[in-house]
């Protein structure tokens, strides 16, 4: 940070904060492969097994995402926000069994059993407090971004 009035270093020095509400600048990709097997027995029994492996990347955070911070790592470097989505489920297995009742008063009814196993949500670490302070506010101690990243959080004097 150079010395002088920090207000004059802003892109629009006549304003303090300028906020762009809900900018449409997010992107995401999903790639998934799956294998499915279905077996029908000679009777009234059938099986279905499904396995999915996938990768879900994005650079925005949905409100329901686990560990969401609701801000940007660095508004000037959007690539820093790219990573596994909070909705990413890398692996998922679903196995089902279906049995059809053909006799008695329950004739025509089917009984199903379904079992699901899937990867848990990812947790991402960040150093939001320090980094935001670096990017979004002039450092009162005169440190630059590159030195601040390795520094402890700024505490009030």
């Amino acid at each position: 940070m150079t010395s002088g009035n920090a207000q004059l270093l802003r892109p629009f020095p006549q304003f303090s904060n300028v906020t762009w509400i809900n900018p449409s600048i997010g992107s995401s990709t999903y790639h998934g492969g799956f294998i499915r097997a279905e077996k029908r027995m000679s009777g009234s029994l059938s099986f279905l097994a499904h396995y999915t492996f996938s990768k879900f990347l994005d650079d925005v955070e949905a409100a329901n995402e686990f560990g969401s911070t609701g801000s940007y790592m660095d508004a000037y470097n959007r690539r820093l926000d790219k990573g596994r989505s909070g909705s990413d489920v890398p692996q998922r297995v679903v196995v089902t069994m279906l049995y059809e009742i053909r006799k008695g008063f329950l004739r025509g009814w089917k009984i199903g059993v379904l079992e699901t196993a899937e990867s848990g949500p990812n947790v991402h670490g960040d150093h939001n407090g320090e980094y935001n302070q670096c990017v979004f506010q002039p450092d009162p101690c005169g440190r630059t971004c590159s030195t601040m990243l390795g520094c402890p959080p700024i505490t009030a004097p």
């Binding site: 802003r10 303090s16 300028v18 762009w20 809900n22 449409s24 997010g26 995401s28 925005v60």
Partner: peptide, 11 residues
């Protein structure tokens, strides 16, 4: 995609 509010006027 709709993203979080973006603060444009930072140093």
């Amino acid at each position: 995609l709709t993203a979080n509010d973006l603060s444009l006027n930072q140093v």
